[in-house]
Design a binder for these strands. Structure first.
Length: 888
RNA sequence: GGAAGAUUAGCUCAGUUGGUUCAGAGCACCUGCCUUACAAGCAGGGGGUCGACGGUUCGAAUCCGCCAUCUUCCACCA
């Protein structure tokens, strides 16, 4: 079959992926081999593939394919996350577009819509991962809200509740008025926001609720909350305000009387030194309120609008109310001044709504003990972080972990298994039946209809923290006495986790907690943190900027292998990825290079009786060694998770060493316009090298390698490169590599002269070598430098020509009539000057007694060698200069 | 405000315990080539005071101090 001159990925990718699937090559079952396990960071069930996924899953796939070829039982478990807030938002938006309001639906009706949405959009992203070549065990696909995994979540809740670590409490939470739910501290993003600082006058009350003419001034950014004020607070040490002791002041506009109190919390030099205390709408104010027994007056409803408690502006949105009340205050004479002010404001990570601190009843999980254990897991090195710097971040968070607010006021998610009795007491049980039984133990007259389940669902992370356990054995979480099933016993702990540092607390830390709690050990050995994919200007990829390319379009345009290469080329661990499409072009070019090298090899005619040429013999000896050397380097890189370095090593091995040097050296010559046949020994060696290279690059480029590997020879039914063992390094003679490098430099020297002198490539040159040179490599030099003769000589004679050095060996190309003596002299003298300076510095070092006294022997030895080399080079340069002058 | 990390070629990054001729790689760039696998290619080439200053040392890109700039994380003074 004739191979086209360009590799066409579209034709081969689907074919081989289907072949892999049909043969269930990705499927893993426990056996006697060593397991290598990865659980996918589950993408949002309704998400679509973006560049971050491409990076993450390419890395995952490289690791899993490498492990598979290393003979391990590789298992990559895929799945999706129900992503409660994100998904519920999408469903609400979709319903809104259809004119349906969530509030008009019952919980059951809404969930029906949500499940329908999930059925329609869920799993798209998993299909997309196949295009990328991800070798997931699709038979093991999981979903965090599938029945078994939901049960695991509920059991976990019950478990921690019984343990006394889950409690219900009224707390100031971060309220997202758009998603209508509390979100955790970690889901709030603080951004500096331009706003105003309003200075307001509060008049002192005469004791009967009437203003006197004395007043104090407070500064606030939130004038719309004054109706919820419970006090004015000053620092007890602030003498400016001592006259206010025991006084009461009137809230502007509504004239409610509140006391002036004193608390150290107030900074004297900030604002006016007077703080309005609004316990219902500010975390710190709430704490001051607790200390001083202040009433909590809640004037903002769940949508962020003022409620009846506010008395004025009832029903207005908080930001509208702010504008209106400023005007009202101004008219009433209470507005002293307005300053421009930039302050940090919390935004919801999900909806970008301004977070409203709000008091509400929520469920919490105590973190103290879990965090302590999980910190030890990482500090002891049982779980390693790559790069290591994230251990610091992790430690800091773990040492300051606050209790985890696990309830969310949503419907899409696992509903909290707390059941309320009519009298307000509640029971926590895994099922309604168990709950009824428990409730009847409290009050035997109760029936199922009397119980009311908590309306809230659990934070999504409360299910994904079980992921490395629940994907294998969902009965394990919450049941420490349960005996792990076969899968869990075999695959847990997983090997490596590849994820972004942005979810180190959300997910990584909590998986470690759950792993330690339920399995008694870490969930993974290594966590490889990728960077964030940015555009080439360093900006985050976002829909609004439109700087996020569609990975599927890229795959269609360049091929999946090229996209994978492109992502890996610009990614080193822990650094952000500045994505640039030219990287993917480079990947495509590499595919093409591999493709064409194969076309060349395939074009060889073999002559069984032919002798191996001298050049081929040298090249084979060298590449054999070079391959082993490169394999050692590649393994070393993989071992340190330096994936892009491993890739670059293979890339150069393939392109530079194999194509540019080896193939050029063994390529049969043309005689009378026809290529000569190649000898069998060389062809066999070449094919074995090519196959080794395919195997080495397969984890990164699965498609083209399978295509060519299958094309190389007739393979058995169901045979695949996926399980071909990773090539192993053999012991090799270092001299084979060093010798060939000398030849490479000699060739490059001749080519350089040709280039400089504008000599046509066809014109043959002569070459003379003086010194200790590996003469067996001469046939390669003759071939690749296009020389008519290469001789080892004792002296160069007196012909005109150009000299150059390889290490300390002198080489000479006679070039009668083409040499510009002045130019050559200048060049030589420049080299000489450099060498003399270099020699002087080396000798200076050696003459320094402190150096010879302190430096290790090896270093001194090396300096002496430098000195000798330099001397010999100087001698050679001087003789060249002399010869050139004589010649002129 | 606190912490961590970064700063090396035009760009993205390596550079391990201070010592090989150590200042590197890939891309980009420049010059010459449509040479019989590949112009998505071949051959050759230029390019950096290792952020600034000071210190330790026989010797510093590497260790220490300080400053500058950038990134991220944590906290939020109304």
């Amino acid at each position: 079959m004739e191979l086209p001159a360009k590799y066409n990925p579209a034709e081969v990718e689907d074919k081989w992926y289907a072949f892999w699937l049909k043969n269930k090559f990705f499927h893993s079952e426990p056996d006697e081999r060593k397991p290598y396990t990865i659980v996918i960071p589950p993408p949002n069930v309704t998400g679509i593939l973006h560049m971050g996924h491409v990076l993450n899953n390419t890395l995952n796939d490289v690791l899993i394919r490498k492990a598979r070829m290393d003979g391990k039982n590789a298992c990559w478990v895929p799945g999706t996350d129900h992503a409660s807030i994100a998904t519920e938002n999408k469903v609400v938006a979709k319903l809104k577009a259809q004119g349906i309001k969530k509030e008009d639906l019952t919980r059951e009706e809404f969930l029906k819509h949500a499940w329908a949405w999930k059925e329609e959009h869920g799993g798209i992203i998993l299909e997309q991962l196949r295009k990328l070549g991800a070798s997931c065990d699709w038979d093991r696909t999981r979903f965090t809200m599938e029945p078994a995994l939901s049960e695991a979540v509920i059991n976990t809740f019950v478990y921690f509740y019984r343990k006394g670590w889950i409690y219900k409490g009224v707390r100031m939470v971060n309220w997202d008025p758009e998603a209508l739910t509390a979100v955790s501290d970690d889901e709030v993003i603080h951004k500096d926001t331009q706003s105003h600082f309003y200075h307001l006058r509060y008049y002192i009350s005469d004791g009967a609720g009437h203003p006197t003419d004395k007043y104090l001034v407070i500064a606030t950014t939130r004038p719309e909350t004054i109706m919820a004020d419970a006090a004015i607070c000053v620092n007890p040490a602030d003498e400016r305000h001592h006259w206010l002791r025991g006084k009461k002041v009137l809230i502007p506009l509504i004239n409610r009387e509140i006391p002036v109190i004193e608390d150290d919390y107030v900074e004297m030099d900030f604002g006016t030194g007077c703080l309005k205390v609004t316990p219902a709408h500010d975390v710190h104010d709430y704490e001051i309120g607790l200390r001083h027994n202040l009433p909590v007056i809640d004037i903002i409803d769940e949508h962020g609008c003022l409620n009846a408690e506010a008395q004025i502006l009832v029903g207005e949105d908080r930001f509208v109310a702010r504008k209106k009340i400023v005007k009202m205050l101004e008219e009433a004479g209470n507005l002293e001044k307005v300053e421009e002010y930039t302050s940090p404001v919390g935004y919801s990570e999900r909806t970008n709504a301004v977070i409203e601190p709000r008091l509400s009843a929520q469920w919490f999980l105590k973190m103290e003990s879990l965090a302590r254990t999980a910190l030890e897991t990482v500090e002891s090195g049982r779980t390693k972080f790559i790069p290591e710097k994230y251990v610091n971040t992790y430690r800091h968070w773990m040492e300051n972990a606050r209790d985890w607010c696990i309830s969310r006021q949503l419907w899409w998610g696992q509903r909290i298994p707390a059941y309320y009795l009519p009298d307000g007491r509640y029971v926590v049980e895994a099922t309604p039946e168990a709950a009824l039984q428990a409730a009847q133990a409290l009050d035997s007259s109760l029936t199922a209809a009397d119980l009311h389940q908590d309306e809230d669902v659990l934070d999504t992370w409360f299910s994904s923290w079980l992921w490395p356990i629940s994907v294998f054995d969902p009965e394990m979480p919450g049941h420490p006495e349960h005996k792990p099933n076969r899968d869990l016993a075999y695959y847990y702990p997983t090997s490596d986790l590849v994820t972004g540092p942005d979810i180190i607390f959300f997910w990584v830390a909590r998986m470690i907690m759950a792993g330690e709690e339920f399995m008694g050990r870490e969930p993974f050995s290594n966590v490889y943190f990728t960077g964030i994919v940015r555009d080439k200007l360093g900006r985050k990829m976002s829909k609004t900027l439109g700087n996020s390319p569609d990975p599927l379009e890229l795959i269609a345009k360049y091929g999946a292998d090229a996209v994978r290469i492109g992502m890996l080329l610009c990614s080193s661990a822990g650094n952000d990825i500045l994505y640039d499409e030219s990287m993917i072009e480079q990947g495509r070019n590499f595919c093409n290079k591999i493709w064409n090298s194969y076309r060349l090899i395939k074009s060889f005619d073999v002559d069984e009786s032919a002798e191996q040429s001298a050049a081929a013999k040298v090249a084979v000896r060298w590449f054999d060694a070079r391959l082993s050397q490169a394999i050692e380097q590649i393994e070393d890189h993989y071992g340190k998770f330096r994936i892009s370095d491993a890739l670059m090593t293979i890339y150069k091995l393939f392109w530079d060493d194999f194509c540019s040097w080896y193939l050029e050296a063994i390529k049969p010559a043309f005689v009378d316009g026809r290529p000569q046949p190649i000898d069998k020994a060389t062809l066999d060696a070449t094919l074995s090298y090519f196959e080794a290279l395919l195997k080495l690059i397969h984890p990164v480029m699965p498609f083209i390698t399978e295509e060519l590997w299958q094309n190389m020879e007739e393979r058995k039914e169901g045979e695949t490169i996926l399980f071909a063992p990773t090539p192993k390094a053999k012991a090799y003679p270092a001299a084979a590599i060093a010798d060939f490098e000398m030849a490479e430099e000699a060739i490059a020297g001749v080519r350089g002269i040709r280039n400089q002198k504008n000599l046509p490539p066809r014109e043959q040159l002569a070459l003379q070598i003086k010194g200790d040179f590996p003469s067996e490599t001469i046939p390669v030099i003759e071939k690749l430098a296009n020389t008519s003769s290469v001789e080892m000589v004792a002296e160069f004679g007196d012909a005109a020509g150009v000299n150059f050095l390889v290490k300390t060996v002198e080489l000479f190309v006679p070039l009668t009539g083409l040499v510009n003596v002045a130019e050559e002299l200048a060049k030589l003298e420049k080299d000489l000057a450099y060498q003399q300076k270099f020699l002087a510095s080396v000798r200076g070092k050696l003459a320094n007694e402190k150096f010879t006294a302190h430096a290790p022997a090896a270093v001194i030895e090396n300096e002496r060698k430098k000195e000798a080399d330099s001397l010999s080079k100087i001698e050679s340069l001087e003789s060249q200069i002399k010869a050139l002058k004589n010649n002129a």
